[in-house]
Amino acid sequence: MSSKEWPLWEVFIRSKQGLSHKHVGSLRAADAQMAIDNARDVYTRRSEGISIWVIESKQVTASDPDESAEFFEPSESKIYRHPTFYNVPDGISHM
């Protein structure tokens, strides 16, 4: 028995037309095709999606949690950056 583990993949599912793919979780698979198949079995068994993306987790570059103060806090005080002065017409969803 080999004890080598398959690489980890991040899974993104689009739940319906017009929406973007959303990160739903991760899984292990030997290659991209198996990752797609596994994602289908693990994450869409209750009709959650119509399209799947996978990407090997090691390809993801993440921001450094130690830098979160300089990264994210400065924007907290800049409420004028939120477009709250516009009225969104009725019938526009996903805003």
Partner: peptide
């Protein structure tokens, strides 16, 4: 053999 395949087989 692995979690993912366990679910695939039972599906």
């Amino acid at each position: 053999p692995v979690l993912e395949e366990d679910i695939a087989l039972t599906n």
